[in-house]
Amino acid sequence: MISRAFAPALAAVESGRIPGATLGIVTADGRRAIRCAGMAALVPEPESLTEDHWFDLASVSKVIATTTMILTLAEQGRLDLDRPLTDAIPDLRQYDVTGAAERRLTFRDCLAHDTYLPAVEPIYTYGDDPARLRAFVLQREWRHGPPVYSDINFILLGIAVERLTGRPLSDWPLGPGLAYGPPPGPAVATEACPWRGRVMKGEVHDENAWALGGAPGHAGLFGTVAGVLDYAGGLLNGTGASPALLAAIRTSVRAERTCGWERRFAGWHGGDACSAETIGHTGFTGTGLWIDFDRGLAWTLLTNRVHPTRHRETGILELRRQTGDAVIAAFGR
């Protein structure tokens, strides 16, 4: 069955569209299957991909790490999701305490990307001192626009976690196979970065995450396929999350979004065959995780589609959709 589910990814590797891919599948009763193919790196030295390699999870960090942290702190009574971020970050836009719109953003607004904040900003171009860049994020008057998926939302949430716990996000217990970089094992290469002048391997690919110290709220987490499956399996069987956390990540906050996650919608990356009770998230480096609660089935597709460059068409959207449909066809019930 795993060969059938892995067929789209294997075809993408064999055609040269992506260097390597790993597919992991887990069920609510603990059964799992893993298949990988291709290369962990093409340059500067070729390296074959194995199940033990650590992937830069990119924005999958938002759900595995930051969303879990925020919802856990809410359950502990240390924050209220519907209260402003200023409860945790009182100095947010501190020079305009009565007029700044940023001071009215709530934790839930940011989790659901229901804000006016821009999708992304080249924060790394303003310097490389993490503390100074955090101050820049907090004091900047952000340009307004319609609600979009925004890294800025989760950078703010990461700062809130740091303020409430007094510790960096990298201190949060995440379980085996999940860690902020550098990972404690062989790493998959991502991009040959023009700014940093080297192939990123074991260092976070996202420029803003790197400049912010490697463990901000929007990216920075590394994971093995086993580590991601352990996390997903814990959500499926209830051992890895409380009922309140599960309700938050499964309940729509606005169209197509829960707290942190996407819900299934027409044309999404998870494919068409999954049930309406499926949530998922993708990462820019070529990663993704989807959890179908109705079927008791989760899958992660981990690729290095930005290696050695992001500036080429890899067909990652269609690959993800084909993989989701193939997983359901092979393992669904």
Rank of each mutant, 00 (worst) to 15 (best):
G315M: 05
I152H: 03
V253L: 04
L178R: 06
C36M: 12
A135I: 00
A131C: 10
R108L: 10
I123R: 11
W268E: 14
P84E: 11
Y180D: 08
R134T: 09
A189V: 01
Q322P: 00
A5K: 01
A112E: 06
Y231P: 03
T239V: 11
L169N: 12
A74W: 06
G166F: 04
A232Y: 12
E102A: 15
P184M: 03
T285R: 02
S59K: 11
A112K: 05
G175R: 08
H307N: 04
R198H: 15
A232C: 11
W290S: 01
E162K: 08
A255Y: 08
D230Q: 12
D82N: 15
L157F: 02
T287Q: 05
L111D: 00
G288V: 03
E141I: 11
I316T: 08
A330S: 14
G20S: 10
P44T: 13
Y116T: 13
V60E: 05
A248Y: 03
E121T: 15
V225G: 11
P8H: 08
R32D: 13
G288C: 14
A41Y: 03
S59F: 09
I159N: 05
A232Q: 07
P182M: 12
L23F: 03
E256Y: 11
P308M: 09
L236P: 02
G38M: 07
V188F: 04
A112L: 07
L111A: 01
L317P: 13
T27Q: 13
I159E: 14
T287L: 04
I316E: 06
G202S: 09
T300F: 02
E121C: 13
P173I: 01
L169I: 13
V253D: 01
I328Q: 13
A33F: 10
L319R: 04
H281C: 00
T300S: 15
G177D: 10
E47Q: 15
H144N: 08
T239F: 01
P183V: 11
A135C: 12
L236G: 01
A273M: 12
L302N: 07
M1T: 13
R35D: 09
G175I: 04
A329N: 10
G24W: 03
R35I: 06
T285S: 05
T239K: 12
G280W: 07
R254A: 06
G217T: 04
R83I: 00
T224N: 09
G166K: 11
H53C: 06
G286M: 01
P19F: 08
E203R: 12
L57M: 04
R83K: 14
A21H: 10
L289K: 02
D128P: 00
T303Q: 08
A65P: 01
E162W: 05
R132T: 14
L317S: 14
I249K: 10
T278W: 05
V204F: 11
G217D: 05
L317R: 15
S242L: 02
L317Q: 14
A189C: 04
A241T: 10
R132H: 13
F107M: 05
M69V: 14
L105Q: 05
